[in-house]
């Protein structure tokens, strides 16, 4: 375990922490498993929290503005949509070029994550990580060839780690007491 990396991460987290009050907190809990599927979903949340609809709308807009909510919408399962092959694609990039290459890779819609992470030497030399999706293994490999050409990655060592099995997939949970509800399916919990 690298304590230096960890304490740096901790520091950056504390700097970026949003200022949330008890109502924001309750609102986040109310929507984190999904929005109600009824005509006025925000009125339904308001009813559950005992506040009014306009307040819910204003607070959600605020949370989006602060970047606490990246966006609202659907989260797809790649596998069920025909993207059966996924791989973690990792690169060993000189430190001063990581941002440039990260930005280049992340513009393609079949790249769904692109992070810089620490190397763990000597066992793991790679410091730029992407998730890449394709219809098949060949499709993924072709897309990688395309990326190498587009982002001029010819000289950089890379490795493709195809997935064999997925054991667990759930959305991340941000409140400990919600942990046990994580497998809960979104329900139509509307009073009206």
């Amino acid at each position: 375990m690298d304590m230096k990396t960890f304490s740096k991460q901790l520091q950056s987290i504390n700097q970026h922490l949003a200022q949330l009050d008890a109502i924001d907190d309750a609102l986040i809990r109310a929507i984190e498993n999904g929005l109600p599927l009824c005509s006025r979903p925000y009125a339904e949340i308001a009813r559950q929290l005992g506040i009014d609809e306009q307040q819910v709308l204003a607070r959600l807009a605020g949370l989006q503005q602060q970047g606490v909510i990246k966006r609202m919408g659907v989260i797809v399962r790649h596998r069920e949509l025909g993207y059966r092959a996924n791989a973690m694609l990792v690169w060993d990039v000189p430190d001063e070029r990581v941002s440039e290459l990260g930005r280049c890779l992340s513009q393609y819609d079949f790249i769904t994550l692109c992070y810089r992470r620490p190397r763990v030497l000597p066992d793991w030399p790679y410091n730029l990580f992407c998730m890449i999706h394709g219809k098949s293994r060949e499709d993924v490999l072709q897309r990688i060839d395309w990326l190498i050409e587009q982002c001029h990655l010819e000289s950089l060592p890379h490795h493709v780690l195809f997935s064999r099995r997925r054991f667990k997939q759930r959305g991340a949970v941000y409140r400990a007491d919600n942990m046990r509800h994580t497998q809960k399916r979104q329900e139509k919990h509307c009073a009206t």
């Binding site: 950056s12 987290i13 970026h16 922490l17 949003a18 949330l20 986040i28 929507i31 984190e32 498993n33 999904g34 929005l35 599927l37 949370l63 602060q66 970047g67 606490v68 909510i69 990246k70 966006r71 609202m72 919408g73 659907v74 989260i75 797809v76 399962r77 069920e80 949509l81 997939q169 759930r170 959305g171 991340a172 941000y174 399916r185 979104q186």
Partner: peptide, 20 residues
């Protein structure tokens, strides 16, 4: 959602902003 084509329909959070 029932057929699990979608994992979820709702907000995507930036976890670090929530202290996670």
């Amino acid at each position: 959602l029932a057929d699990r084509v979608l994992t979820r329909f709702g907000p995507m959070f930036q976890a670090e902003k929530l202290g996670g």
